[in-house]
Design a protein around this nucleic acid. Structure first.
Length: 589
DNA sequence: AAACACACTTAGTATCGGATTC
DNA sequence: GAATCCGATACTAAGTGTGTTT
């Protein structure tokens, strides 16, 4: 409540002064109208990198301490029962919990696990346990399965108790005060210890992710706030007051040595403003993209190799929405690439293919080891350049040997203030949605059909950005179920029509209505089936959440009378509150 | 200019929990 | 009332990009 009033008082409303006064009064009179407060996003913003003036929070929630196994759950080595020390046992349970997973059969995973497990053993255990293959974790594994069954079978009351306890923790630790707002924290729980599961072919899979203690934690808050207290008998590593950053808590993780953070929820002011800013940058690119395109096309002819490489890479980033492709330390992570780090082996050139000239075939693993496979006809000049870049190189050599993301981004910065490689992805995603919506929405359609059009526009973006997913395990089944429903509905419709025909004089109107209703239901089901089928291997969520200017979707909803809830669920509406507040029906990206 | 440190966004998948079906 | 389904949410890995140090 209080922040709304403050928002009114400290805001910098532009042309809405009169409205502010009115809403301000309403806020005093009707506290429930608080969510109505649109002016948060127009509060004064800080300059020179200051992110906040006041920050208060309760610190993180730590993982529960290790709960040793009951004595009847045994570990066997070489067929013989062996009582493990608590520390070694804990690490063993991590492995036991994953026994059903394919991971535990992989050589790298087993090797890494075994190595880290040994570090946690007593010297006696170390001398006894010399071969992972002789370890029998099956009783542990069964025990955890039973536990999870027991949890499912708990009484309603017990489940309710747990729910209430979680809610209490959320209320206590899940929020902070940043400046005048109470904000939701995204991840207030410290990651529990366990075995690292990288994605793809990760060289560190199976390594032990160690337990994080208060002594590992750096707390960030404002000096004049109530500082979070470490658990009794412990100390924080450090308490600092850095208002040039947005995080509340950080620690260093032991697998890659990188820093992990606790930050605010996407619904927060600080994230919302950043998000808005991101789309505004992309809209500025829209204004000069043709100039930039003309420039890189020109640069394909440059005398300098580094400029040609830069120009071809930028063309890929623009046309194909590839990621920038930073260098990665070899052997530390899975072997994945983006544009600048493409290697010769990732491209195949086809002078002619399927009746098209100058086709480039891409095949590489991108972020999260998701495969990017695409055959793209390109301009002759690009093709000739690629031939040149690939000349006299080994498959594992860099395609763009005179280029990296730093060089590329420096160049982009000169073309437009704030321009980096990733802005092209945002820009191309959003402009594609806008164009698709303009093109395929039919104002005559009913609501479900319009939503199908929306999802198709969204899908075009997801395909551009290569947002794939493994088809859900139950995909075929769920399609069948839907088809069964459709068949049933068809029969129902036939019945209803028959009835209508027979009742020429009696209750015709209500029968007509019934037919109409069933027809609508049938159509809804059919649309749903089409949507699901087309979505089999495409994930819409990522682009919706990270690449599409929400104002496009909101304006579209307003223009065509679609309730926003049909497009954005509750969380998404919270994240995009800034856009819901500001987008008018004629907004165009 | 390479290496490093840091902060922050983007990403797919596992799990949860409420709705629906049997 | 159990089983199943499915969207929402939690989780945390894996990127991008900037600024500093060597």
């Amino acid at each position: 409540m209080f922040y709304c009033i403050l928002a009114v008082n400290t805001g910098t409303p532009r042309i809405k002064t009169i409205l502010v006064a009115c809403v301000g009064m309403l806020v005093y009179i009707l506290p429930s109208l608080c969510f109505f407060m649109p002016f948060r996003w127009e509060e004064e913003r800080y300059t020179d990198g200051v992110k906040w003036k006041f920050l208060e929070h309760k610190g993180p929630v730590f993982a529960p301490p290790y709960d040793p196994l009951p004595s009847n759950v045994k570990f066997y080595y070489d067929g013989k029962h062996m009582k493990l020390s608590s520390t070694a046992e804990e690490v063993a349970t991590f492995f036991a919990k994953m026994l059903d997973h394919e991971y535990t059969t992989k050589e790298v995973f087993r090797k890494n696990f075994y190595k880290d497990w040994r570090k946690e053993m007593t010297s006696e255990e170390k001398s006894k346990i010399t071969d992972l293959n002789k370890c029998d974790f099956s009783e542990m594994s069964e025990y955890f399965k039973a536990q999870s069954e027991a949890r499912k079978a708990m009484t309603k009351e017990d489940k309710q108790k747990i729910k209430e306890e979680n809610e209490r923790i959320l209320q206590e630790y899940g929020f902070c005060i940043m400046d005048n707002h109470k904000e939701r924290i995204a991840n207030f729980r410290i990651e529990p210890p366990g075995l690292f599961r990288g994605r793809g072919d990760h060289p560190k899979m199976g390594m032990l992710k160690r337990r994080i203690r208060p002594e590992d934690i750096i707390v960030n808050c404002s000096k004049d706030s109530k500082h979070p207290k470490p658990p009794p008998g412990t100390k924080w590593k450090e308490v600092r007051h850095d208002n040039k950053v947005t995080w509340l808590v950080s620690w260093t993780e032991n697998i890659q040595g990188s820093i992990k953070y606790i930050m605010l929820n996407p619904s927060s002011r600080i994230k919302g403003e950043k998000d808005w800013q991101k789309y505004e940058t992309a809209r500025r690119l829209k204004k000069c993209v043709e100039r930039i395109r003309a420039q890189y096309r020109d640069d394909w002819k440059s005398k300098e190799m580094r400029i040609r490489q830069r120009a071809v890479a930028l063309y890929f980033i623009d046309k194909l929405a590839l990621r920038a492709g930073n260098e990665k330390e070899e052997g530390e992570t899975a072997d994945t690439v983006g544009c600048c780090s493409l290697r010769v082996e990732h491209l195949t050139l086809h002078q002619e293919m399927d009746g098209q000239e100058y086709v480039v075939e891409f095949d590489f693993l991108g972020k999260d080891s998701i495969r990017y496979y695409n055959k793209v006809p390109v301009e002759k000049r690009v093709f000739k350049n690629l031939q040149l870049f690939m000349e006299d190189k080994e498959p594992e050599d860099d395609l763009f040997d005179r280029l990296n993301t730093s060089i590329l981004n420096k160049h982009l910065q000169e073309l437009m203030d704030g321009l980096t490689a990733k802005v092209f992805r945002t820009y191309n995603a959003s402009i594609t949605l806008q164009q698709q919506l303009n093109e395929i929405t039919n104002s005559e359609d009913n609501v479900p059909a319009k939503i199908l059009s929306y999802n198709r526009a969204n899908r075009a973006v997801a395909i551009l950005c290569n947002h794939q997913r493994a088809p859900p395990k139950t995909f075929e089944k769920s399609m069948q179920n839907l088809q069964t429903k459709i068949d049933a509905k068809k029969e129902q419709l036939a019945d209803a029509k028959r009835e209508l025909k027979m009742s020429k004089y009696l209750a015709v109107e209500s029968k007509k209505k019934a037919v109409q209703r069933i027809e609508e239901q049938l159509m809804k089901l059919e649309v749903q089936a089409t949507d699901r089928e087309e979505n089999k291997q495409i994930a819409l969520g990522t682009s919706k959440l990270n690449y599409l200017d929400p104002r496009i979707s909101i304006a579209w909803c307003k223009k065509f009378g679609i309730p926003i809830e049909k497009i954005y669920n509750k969380t998404q509406r919270e994240k995009f509150a800034w856009a819901i507040d500001m987008a008018e029906k004629d907004f165009q990206f």
